[in-house]
Computed example of a mutant assay.
Amino acid sequence: MTTQLDCSVGLKKETTYGTAVTVDRFPEFIDESFAWNPSFVQGAGMRVGSRLARSARRVLAKQSAGGDLNVELVSKGLGVLLEALFGNGVSTAVPGQAGVFQQLYTPTTTDPLNSYTIQKGIPTLGGGAATAMTFLGAVCTSGEFSASNADIVKLKTTWDAKEVKTDVGYAAPSYVAGGELFHFAEGAITIGGSQTPPTATALATGGTVAATIEDFSVSFDNKIDDGGFTFGGSGKRNRKPVVGLADAKGKVTAEYSDTILRDAYLNQTALGLTLTFLSTTTIGTSAKYALQFHFPEIRLEGELPKSAGGSVVKQSIDFTVLDGLVAGSPVYVALVTTDATI
């Protein structure tokens, strides 16, 4: 028996693009919008005595699927989504910390991205069994991280899939035990100054602490292509999509307490940015669960401070993440966890 709360989403990396595998990772999610995206074409030929488009002249010429998955970021079980988004992920044991691992994610520089089977289970009204809708050949096209004031850190991923099937058996969900939510009270941000990127086993360090930031968001778009719909594919994509020139953009809101960010915007100064969420829970000997975003070079895109009618003056500051062509990656996401594998 079910209730309307008993919705599930599961996923697993595919071996062959578009060939179903049994999903075995089940994130606790806020909402999802996975849907079928058909392209119907209607014949336009005229026929005496017929004033409506005819059913025999309607064809399904092209189809795809996909949607969004919105989750809260937790210290365990998160790796599968981060690897899907960035394409690269490595899990390394932290020296001297038994049972502690640091997972490091960076954008792939090799085509193609991994594809996944995603299955959602939706219960029917009245306590009936969950119905399965399975999305094959799902590739994570983009993701947006948000750390709002006094809130839980969230990630919305967007997926492009080859097709949706309803004849794949429902996989009952099983959830990762333990783990903690990352949230606003655990966060600290540095902007500018001398910063050292994270390594396989150590988080990024250095920089100038920014004590006036109220919220933060950043998006990463793989800019996958929209091709691959070729003859012989029954109107479906025949191959995995390939990546393009990725786009990473963000935004912070800051109280206006000094001119540092204003001047960095006006002078287009290259700045490093690191945002770290550090749990108070000890794992291993002395380690803590942690989630960290590090961008070696960003450029600010506004704005100049404006009067606020007597209220505290705030700046809404957009930024773009750029590749400074130095050793390493222009984007890092690090996760300190007790998960040994991604």
Rank of each mutant, 00 (worst) to 15 (best):
V153Q: 01
V153I: 11
K154W: 05
K154T: 14
K154S: 13
K154A: 11
K156M: 06
K156H: 08
K156R: 13
K156E: 09
T157N: 03
T157H: 02
T157L: 02
T157I: 05
T157D: 03
T157Y: 00
T157P: 00
T157E: 03
T158W: 05
T158V: 09
T158H: 09
T158K: 10
T158C: 04
T158I: 06
T158G: 11
W159K: 04
W159Y: 02
W159R: 04
W159I: 04
W159F: 04
D160K: 15
D160Q: 14
D160S: 15
D160Y: 05
D160N: 15
D160F: 10
D160E: 12
D160P: 09
D160H: 10
A161K: 01
A161R: 00
A161D: 01
K162Y: 03
K162V: 07
K162L: 10
K162W: 03
K162H: 06
E163R: 13
E163H: 13
E163T: 15
E163I: 15
E163W: 09
E163D: 09
V164K: 02
V164I: 10
V164P: 04
V164S: 00
K165P: 02
K165Y: 06
K165S: 07
K165A: 14
T166R: 10
T166K: 09
T166V: 10
T166Y: 13
D167L: 08
D167K: 11
D167S: 08
D167I: 08
V168Y: 08
V168W: 05
V168C: 07
V168A: 00
G169A: 14
Y170W: 15
Y170E: 09
Y170Q: 09
Y170P: 03
A171W: 04
A171N: 10
A171Y: 02
A171C: 07
A172G: 06
A172Y: 14
A172N: 12
A172P: 08
P173K: 08
P173R: 02
P173M: 01
P173Q: 01
S174M: 08
S174W: 01
S174F: 09
S174Q: 15
Y175S: 08
Y175F: 14
Y175I: 10
Y175W: 10
Y175E: 07
V176T: 12
V176I: 09
A177C: 12
A177K: 13
A177W: 07
G178M: 13
G178C: 14
G178R: 04
G179K: 02
G179Y: 01
G179V: 03
G179R: 01
E180C: 04
E180V: 13
E180G: 14
E180T: 12
E180W: 06
L181E: 14
L181A: 12
L181I: 08
L181P: 03
F182M: 07
F182I: 01
F182E: 04
F182C: 03
F182W: 04
F182T: 00
